[in-house]
Nucleic acid binder design. Structure first.
Lengths: 194, 194
DNA sequence: GTCTATATCGGGATAGAC
DNA sequence: GTCTATCCCGATATAGAC
């Protein structure tokens, strides 16, 4: 039982670092410390383990978003918390890019049936961000703003991965924070709080 | 002689659509209409053809940027021309993402020695955009602005690939155009807007 | 320059012993 | 549940004929 969780954990990391297709069963088995034969007792096909990894990432993401919702009292701070990911995960992103974006892109090129499942990870962030903006009073623009923040994260991650430039990342974070502050400033004049 | 060019052309397209690692020699040979054996007369290793594809993309990009410089008289229009790529190439981007971003990301995960060569494609756009902003009078912020526009393109491409949403793309293009207009309006003023 | 045939290797997947 | 041994296939790469 515990072995299965170990496999998913190792595969999750290897898929992120080396890509889904490039990661062999041997590499996963090696990382866990079991034989290839034993591996097949837990997962019959490579797609099966991909499904398990996606499910694990999905529940981990849900937990993280719920945690942010508990930690940060204001929706604006929650959005800022999301924006900060590119700084908090900077080391990994510089080496391997965004876990969601790179996997979605790879599965798209492979024409893999699990692609929508990977897009579902994007949707978790999208709807969560959307809700934050709705709570801030942006009923009409909430999804537009959510997608804008999501696009920010993907753009910064892609170039952080290409150029390894921490100052660029910080400048973009500051820029988005300023954009957010502008939205909030414009809103309170037209839609005063409570 | 012409066969070599055909191979590079086919490989370029297949690397973009299906990814570098996923593309087999057989698939390239098939697309060109030659046998696998003949293939090795022109390219000895897979890395060799990748180098040729990167060189082809590099010269094609240089030509495109030079063309934009001839077509558009003002630097601002040239930047807008770049921004419009995500609309002009929307169909391909929805299916395969950005050719530069996805290849750079894949080579990073593979730990491939040609990765810096792929990053060089980003640098072509970066320095070109930087020069446009310099010509607009932004000496200090030119590279910052260039990277911001580049990040925009990567973010939009990634989410366009994930969600296939043309309206999102247009909204982001409009948003960046507005940002650019603000920069241009504030440039000669002492109190620039955000 | 182009072909067919083939060597070699790695990875996904299975069988069966313990 | 875990192991070793093995099958099978696809992919890189080579040899040599035409």
């Amino acid at each position: 039982m515990e072995t299965r969780a170990h496999i998913v954990e190792a595969a999750d990391r290897l898929f992120y670092e080396n890509g889904f297709e490039h990661t062999s069963f041997a590499a996963i088995a090696d990382a866990v410390g079991i034989s290839r034969g034993n591996f097949y007792y837990h997962f019959k096909t490579k797609d099966e383990i991909l499904t398990a990894v996606l499910a694990a990432r999905s529940s981990r993401t849900r937990e993280m978003l719920a945690e942010w919702e508990r930690d940060e009292s204001s929706p604006a701070d929650r959005v800022r918390r999301f924006v900060e990911i590119v700084v908090a995960n900077q080391v990994d992103i510089e080496s391997y890019g965004c876990p969601v974006g790179t996997l979605t892109s790879e599965l798209a090129k492979l024409g893999h049936p699990a692609r929508p499942h990977a897009v579902g990870l994007f949707e978790l962030f999208r709807t969560w961000l959307c809700r934050q903006f709705e709570e801030l009073g942006f009923t009409a623009e909430a999804d537009d703003f959510a997608m804008h923040v999501l696009a920010f994260s993907q753009g910064v991650a892609a170039l952080s991965n290409a150029f390894h430039d921490g100052e660029f990342v910080q400048r973009e974070v500051d820029r988005l924070d300023a954009w957010l502050a502008d939205r909030l400033a414009g809103r309170s004049s037209e839609h005063p709080r409570h």
